[in-house]
Design a protein around this nucleic acid. Structure first.
Length: 602
DNA sequence: CCCCCCCC
């Protein structure tokens, strides 16, 4: 039970007076969970000792909450405090109380191995009261400095103030909350949106938003209405500003990709001033990258950061939206990463037009939204998302190196694949059960069954398709060497032969008409679509007997069921998404488990 | 006070 480290005695007294000391070694004597009224986010308050003094006003920045929540840090743990800042808070009982906010720390010796060291005394209150030098400077800068003369109604200027004075009183972004409003942050504008207008039942107006970052964290900040005119041109991306007197409120997590429970809004009292001293310690953009593999397991609608290599792109697709008739341009970008997974990123309009994936660039996105289509996950971006090509960050070089050293040849799992099936959990249902249970009425449903092809329809199962991978629609032969795709609204010099099979399947319970796409039709005919196309060109009549190639074959059919209305008639539409040869070992295991179930054994 | 990301 002996300590291997000596504590940095007197460090707390110095720090709480506004001084700095590098990597002080301290002991955590206790920790307390503080729950916030406003959010479900917790905070931890620490009893912190330097061997000589102890303070109970140390907090963890929420980003490292898990260090305590995980049980890594127990009482008596000795830590090296690698990054910290102090912050003044106001509340009803105490005015301008100074707290220590720990941004980063390293465990030197676990609490289980040591006892409380020494007999530290409470750091006297007046050691960190308002009348000490650094706090006084903050008060000065807020109330009397030229800074505060830039008050409401006054056009902001770029008057350069004494920066050292300012930095003394600066608060970390992670310490902001709705409970105190006497703060100044020094933050970099990592991202600025364009001006947007809105009009709804609550009124109309204009706004822009920006992402502010400092060493401790990040926060979204929105500027509304007439303040837009005042600030939009003044605030530039990547510049650093001192900002104070904003409204801080709880952020709606659903719409924010930033790691902060709060967001802020400019008010008429807001003060903004550019910091002319470049401060490289303030990061450009904070990323929390999620692997593509992981995205496959995350709820649709979640906003995440992602980095990947552009492995391929679609052509620019131009089409008219079905509902609005509006012309739309999009491009699908396939991203891959070290998790050997791929995902489709949908780009729209000018971003779609401009994107060039020919050199397999690294693409990073801050704030991409996980979407879902036909059972596959895709990514979309907002106007406020930050998309960067070949960003200058370590992750970018790491993924580049992976791709260039074999990653490009890896087989990847495409989590955008349109199926929702193919996994082991697909339920076994007979065709009769599918009808009896009303599958596909309220939502798309998936099932699998072992069935026999009773009748493969030999008419019209071959067509000339749009060469665009994501389109595959039937094209019109213009008889002049060009082929027109109505969906893409474009002419192409070539086409692809594709198959669309239609067959009546029978299982033990009933029978059902299903359709199947090209790859699965190829399986049941045991021919490629190009081979079928070649037959059509040389001996079209031969196609009429092609049903014989499929009839009476048995497969496991993994199907999608959905009710569809056509000509006022609603009926069940079943697509055999995947046609697999029967794996008798697996299928028999399933039958045995069913028999056991039915006979009441388990 | 916005909070929308379209299409198959």
């Amino acid at each position: 039970m002996a300590e291997k480290y000596s504590l940095t005695q007197g460090a707390l007294g110095l720090i709480m007076k506004g001084g700095t000391i590098e990597d002080p070694i301290m002991q955590i004597l206790g920790s307390k969970r503080i729950s916030s009224v406003c959010t479900d986010k917790e905070r931890f308050r620490l009893l912190l000792s330097d061997g000589k003094n102890v303070i109970s006003f140390a907090m963890l920045t929420t980003q490292i909450n898990n260090r305590i929540a995980s049980g890594e840090i127990v009482d008596n743990t000795i830590v090296k405090v690698k990054k910290y800042t102090t912050s003044l808070i106001n509340n009803a009982e105490k005015r301008n109380k100074r707290v220590l906010v720990i941004l980063e720390m390293e465990v030197l010796q676990p609490g289980e191995e040591v006892n409380k060291i020494g007999n530290p005394e409470q750091l006297p209150e007046n050691e960190f009261e308002d009348d000490t030098n650094s706090s006084a400077m903050l008060k000065y800068s807020l109330d009397f400095s030229p800074f505060s003369s830039l008050n409401s109604g006054t056009k902001p200027t770029s008057t350069h103030l004494n920066v050292s004075l300012r930095d003394e009183g600066t608060h970390p972004i992670s310490s902001l909350s709705p409970y105190h409003n006497r703060w100044i942050i020094k933050a970099r504008v990592a991202n600025k949106s364009t001006i947007r207008t809105w009009s709804n039942s609550r009124g109309e107006g204009q706004l822009f938003s920006m992402d502010l970052v400092d060493e401790s964290g990040e926060i979204r900040c929105t500027v509304f209405r007439d303040l837009v005119d005042r600030y939009f041109d003044m605030i530039e991306v990547d510049k650093i500003y001192y900002i104070s007197k904003c409204q801080v409120k709880v952020s709606n997590r659903q719409f924010s990709n930033l790691k902060n429970d709060y967001e802020m809004t400019f008010t008429n009292d807001t003060i903004v001033q550019e910091c002319l001293n470049p401060d490289m310690s303030i990061p450009q953009t904070k990323y929390d990258f999620m692997t593509i593999e992981k995205i496959g397991h995350i709820e649709t609608g979640t906003v995440i950061d992602v980095i990947g290599i552009c492995k391929s792109t679609s052509e620019l697709l131009i089409f008219n939206a079905k509902t609005t008739g509006k012309e739309m341009k999009k491009r699908e970008v396939t991203l891959v990463d070290q998790s050997n997974s791929a995902i489709s990123l949908t780009l729209w309009d000018s971003k779609a037009e401009k994107f060039d994936g020919s050199s397999n660039p690294v693409v990073s996105i801050k704030g991409a939204k996980i979407m879902e289509f036909a059972g596959g996950k895709t990514l979309s971006i907002f106007p406020t998302s930050v998309l960067k090509i070949n960003p200058d960050i370590p992750e970018s070089y790491r993924i580049r190196s992976w791709f260039d050293n074999g990653g490009m040849l890896q087989n990847v799992t495409n989590i955008s694949a349109r199926s929702g099936i193919g996994n082991l959990q697909t339920q076994w249902l007979s065709f009769k059960e599918v009808v009896d249970q009303g599958l596909g009425h309220s939502e798309i449903s998936y099932f699998q069954t072992k069935a026999t092809i009773l009748l493969f329809r030999s008419e019209n199962f071959l067509y000339k398709a749009c060469p665009v991978e994501e389109c595959k629609r039937k094209i019109i032969d213009m008889e002049n060497g060009l082929y027109h795709c109505e969906k893409c609204n474009r002419n192409y010099p070539r086409f692809l032969y594709r198959l669309i099979g239609s067959a009546n399947l029978g299982d033990w319970s009933s029978n059902q008409w299903v359709t199947m796409f090209s790859s699965e039709t190829e399986k049941v005919l045991d021919m490629t679509s190009d081979e079928v196309g070649a037959t059509a060109e040389t001996n079209p009549d031969a196609l009429l007997s092609f049903g014989e190639r499929a009839n009476f074959k048995q497969f496991i059919f993994k199907c999608r069921a959905k009710m569809e209305t056509y000509n006022d008639e609603t009926r069940l539409k079943v697509v055999a998404m995947k046609v697999d040869n029967i794996n008798y070992k697996e299928y028999n295991a399933y039958l045995v488990s069913r028999i056991n179930q039915l006979s009441g054994e388990c």
